[in-house]
Deep mutational scan, measured.
Amino acid sequence: AQFIESYVCRMCSRGDEDDKLLLCDGCDDNYHIFCLLPPLPEIPKGVWRCPKCVM
């Protein structure tokens, strides 16, 4: 059997509050909206890229 790795935030390495986890459309990394600098108030609509992919 294969275990699917749960999504974890690249900043805090936690997978809780998954309703606040953002998936980068560039590299598929995950980030909590409140772990980003600056934090986001809510999940953005449409395409989102993490700080690494925006640079």
Rank of each mutant, 00 (worst) to 15 (best):
L22P: 01
V47M: 08
C12L: 05
W48R: 02
S13I: 12
L21F: 10
D16L: 07
E17V: 15
L23M: 15
E5P: 04
R10T: 13
P41Q: 11
L40T: 08
M11T: 07
C35G: 00
V47K: 14
P39I: 10
L23N: 14
K52W: 04
V47I: 09
M55T: 07
C35S: 03
F3Y: 11
C53K: 00
K45W: 04
K45C: 08
L21T: 08
K20S: 12
Q2K: 15
V8N: 13
E17G: 12
H32L: 01
D29A: 13
K52F: 08
S13K: 07
K52D: 14
C35T: 01
C50H: 01
D29Y: 13
P38L: 06
E42K: 03
R49H: 09
C53Q: 00
S13Y: 08
P51K: 14
V54D: 03
L22A: 06
K45F: 03
P41A: 09
I4G: 05
V54Y: 10
L37H: 12
C9Q: 02
C53P: 02
P41D: 12
A1W: 06
P39T: 03
L22M: 13
D28C: 04
I43A: 05
N30I: 15
C35E: 01
R49K: 15
E42G: 08
Q2L: 09
G26V: 07
I33R: 04
K52C: 05
P51E: 09
E17T: 14
G46Y: 04
F3S: 13
N30T: 11
G26C: 12
E17P: 10
E17I: 11
C50E: 00
G26A: 14
K20V: 06
E17A: 14
D18W: 13
H32W: 01
Y7K: 14
F3R: 13
D19I: 07
D16S: 14
C50Y: 01
W48Y: 03
D16N: 14
P41H: 05
P51F: 11
C53A: 01
I43Y: 05
S13L: 13
W48S: 01
Y31P: 01
C53H: 00
S13A: 06
R10E: 10
L22R: 07
G15V: 12
V47P: 06
L23C: 09
Y31H: 01
F3E: 09
A1P: 11
I4Q: 15
P51Q: 08
L23A: 13
G26L: 10
Q2V: 08
K45M: 03
D18L: 13
I4D: 11
P38Q: 15
V8P: 09
C12A: 00
L37C: 08
S6E: 10
V54E: 04
F3C: 07
G46I: 03
R10N: 11
L36R: 02
V8I: 06
D25G: 10
G46C: 03
P38A: 11
L36P: 02
C24R: 03
Y31N: 02
H32E: 00
D19H: 11
D29K: 15
A1Y: 08
D18A: 14
P51W: 07
D25E: 06
V47H: 10
D19Q: 12
F3L: 12
F3Q: 07
W48T: 00
V47D: 10
M55L: 08
G46P: 04
D29S: 03
G26H: 14
D18N: 10
C9K: 00
E5I: 05
Y31A: 03
L36F: 06
P41G: 10
C12Y: 01
I4F: 10
R10Y: 07
S6G: 11
